[in-house]
Design a protein around this nucleic acid. Sequence first.
DNA 1: TCCACTAACATACAGTCTGTATGGAACAGG
DNA 2: CCTGTTCCATACAGACTGTATGTTAGTGGA
Lengths: 219, 219
Amino acid sequence: MSVPRIRRSRSAEHVADTRRALLRAARELFAERGYAATGTEDIVAAAAVTRGALYHHFKDKADLFRAVMAECAQEMAERLVAQETARAETNPGDAWQLLRSGFQSFLDACNDAQFQRIVLIEGPAVLGHSAWDALVEEHGYVLLAEALTDAIREGNVDDLPVGPLTRMLAALISEASLYIARADDHVRARQEAGLVLERLLIGLGRVPGVSPALVTGQS
Amino acid sequence: MSVPRIRRSRSAEHVADTRRALLRAARELFAERGYAATGTEDIVAAAAVTRGALYHHFKDKADLFRAVMAECAQEMAERLVAQETARAETNPGDAWQLLRSGFQSFLDACNDAQFQRIVLIEGPAVLGHSAWDALVEEHGYVLLAEALTDAIREGNVDDLPVGPLTRMLAALISEASLYIARADDHVRARQEAGLVLERLLIGLGRVPGVSPALVTGQS
DNA sequence: TCCACTAACATACAGTCTGTATGGAACAGG
DNA sequence: CCTGTTCCATACAGACTGTATGTTAGTGGA
């Protein structure tokens, strides 16, 4: 009953096509229905191949997801870098000013349903913490940490520990983007979240009168 | 519709036992292995019942998870409320001071592996966004939002939109607690995260020289 | 050109897991 | 005594994942 599939010359280009089709289909479906609710059969059907191709190119379903998430994170990082280098050229300010505006543009860039669902929602649960963190570390945190280090070196941001600062700021922006995405009034939510973010960042600047040893960790 | 007094002195207790056993076993296993990696058979085995009992008490596996997560969130909220009311009595300060110290103690309370895994990691992916948000809204956000509203009314916190502020602060603390939990040096991580948090909160206070309309939303 | 040999799939199958349907025991009420 | 309901156990059907196996196009060597 099954119509035999005719396979023509299988060039390296065709192989790459298969892989890309799988990635594209998986990305779409994972973002729309979530990881658990997306069967491998659904993916290969959308990609017009069979499960054999999937398991040839990827170790398992989670491996496919990892590749999809890496692609999402990669694209987001590239988008941001391009945006920020352009801004730095046209309007050269100090690193701190650049970082603050960068946060705001990240807030806009983050407003991408696929990125949110795959990287922020499904990612931590599907890949465990370590694998997720490794991916984000590679694609996202490095940029933020670099910018923060620059700003600290320039003296406009107080010498706070970059590690936790990076994670916490990233979480802040992530949550803000999710808040904006699910709000009824996107424009208003964007404005409010941007305002809150800007206010929170104020505290990072040099504040001469404040001793950095206020908090010791024991309540 | 009339509910006559039901007295099943012994059996009613037994029924509650079954339910509690399921909740306890599920909580343990979900926190340890994650939702997807925990089979219903594992849960009922740990609870010393059969799958029939599980599906009698809960609609499906996700429903059981929801109950577990609600329990976790409930306990966390109770713990915090108790802690804060005690603090408020012994050391009555203004709402803002109370809130700041409350954040720090939340940072400590959040350092609970079950809470982190179930509520913060698995929750958003297992229950969708809306169900998760509804639960957190009910158990966690209300407290934070109330405290923020008080602090704003007292004038020590600027009149910022409470909705996004609540979510973003909660995300901040959640990420900080995760950072602390996975750090090699917990004590140091706790100290650093607490410091960063304290600094970020500074920006929320009244800052006379800053116009709140700096950020308009369009980059 | 012939012959391995391998990459790139397709297909069939086995194991696992979830949800449901069925059955039964205990108990309350009429 | 009969009946209905609650509470749970068991059996079963469907779905899904990963793997084993088959098949074909390309490739390098002799």
